[in-house]
């Protein structure tokens, strides 16, 4: 299947989960679809039938509120049955709003309290080096999340330890709960910051382009001896026009059944 079709499937499943429940973190879920699709299609080593397999590559979705994006991805890559997607946030669900490694097959780390997931990924990266298993550790952080001090503690330490097996994406969508990141508390100049912290840093102009994401990962893989930061300029709510238009309010929003149908129509059948 083409990567663009995989992205459309993931987007449909994000809308389905949140639309079925009625509300959810849709903007920051839609913005990271291409990152997830490229990682799971081309780079990550995993076995959906043995999701705790030793030596697998791991992903820490540090911006844990984008759980629906990861669930949609994991479902499409065979980690669990589609029937679970209609249970998002329902009592006793395996798919809580924020990622929980003890509830969802394929989720490698619990995250949701922002800033912590990146440090957990650093711990995994150290462990992988100690075990010599050759795994790659991936993580996705948010730009609002980058206001957390712990992100920079992790950044400093990962560079100090030269964690070349750590690949982190910044979902640089420019918005957070209370509005635009530039209005709330700017994180810029972000590329300079990660460079200054000693990371191999790449900027992806269109973080919702699979091709550009793929090229950035491929480029990162060639560079050894430093942790990798890929700053992906994304659009919060990408792919569904009425959500995209409401960037200042789409962090968490209500999705009616009618809106769900509208979104499906725009995305088209896959």
């Amino acid at each position: 299947m083409e990567l663009s079709d995989i992205c459309r499937k993931i987007r449909r499943d994000i809308v389905f989960q949140i639309g079925t429940f009625g509300v959810g973190h849709i903007g920051g879920s839609l913005s990271i679809v291409e990152i997830l699709a490229v990682l799971y299609s081309k780079y990550m080593r995993f076995d959906p039938k043995s999701c705790k397999k030793v030596g697998r590559d791991r992903l820490v979705l540090s911006k844990g509120h984008a759980g629906p994006a990861l669930y949609a991805t994991l479902c499409n890559f065979g980690f669990f049955d589609r029937s679970l997607l209609s249970t998002l946030n329902r009592p006793n669900t395996s798919l809580p709003s924020h990622c929980d490694m003890n509830k969802t097959p394929g989720v490698d780390m619990t995250a949701g309290s922002l800033g912590q997931g990146l440090s957990c990924a650093v711990g995994m990266s150290l462990a992988s080096k100690l075990k010599g298993d050759g795994a790659s550790i991936y993580s996705i952080i948010g730009d609002g999340e980058s206001q957390e001090g712990q992100i920079w503690e992790a950044a400093m330490f990962a560079a100090h330890q030269k964690l070349g097996n750590l690949f982190v994406f910044l979902d640089y969508n420019g918005a957070q709960i209370d509005g635009l990141t530039s209005d709330v508390c700017s994180i810029d100049p972000i590329c300079e910051k990660w460079n200054a912290f000693g990371w191999h840093t790449l900027f992806v102009e269109d973080g919702n382009s699979c091709k550009q994401i793929d090229e950035a990962i491929s480029e990162s893989k060639k560079f050894k001896g430093k942790p990798h930061m890929i700053i992906a300029k994304t659009i919060k709510g990408f792919g569904i026009s009425f959500i995209e238009k409401d960037i200042a309010n789409n962090h968490s929003m209500k999705i009616s059944k009618e809106q769900m149908a509208l979104a499906f129509k725009e995305l088209g059948e896959v």
């Binding site: 711990g123 462990a127 992790a154 330490f157």
Partner: peptide, 24 residues
């Protein structure tokens, strides 16, 4: 197998969680 994270206790706690999730 001994790491000094510097004066960064929050990072230390979550790094430890990551190590534990990896079987350490």
């Amino acid at each position: 197998r001994c790491f000094n994270v510097g004066v960064a206790e929050q990072n230390m706690a979550s790094i430890a969680a990551g190590l534990s999730s990896y079987g350490m």
